[in-house]
Amino acid sequence: MTLTTIIYLVIAAIVFLSVLYNMLTKEERVVDKIACAMILVPLALRLLMIK
């Protein structure tokens, strides 16, 4: 794994955690939470290097 890949995984983790935090504490509408979930799924799979 190259340094660039590791840096991008860190960026993906920052975005993942921020979206998750917003979903749990800031978003009130159900549709906004679904929008957050749409972003979380692929980021989780990329963080685990499955896809």
Binding site: V15, S18, V19, N22, D32, A35, C36, M38, I39
Partner: peptide, 9 residues
């Protein structure tokens, strides 16, 4: 990130 969320979605 919250500002960007609608566009990312």
């Amino acid at each position: 990130i919250r500002t960007a969320t609608p566009v990312m979605a």
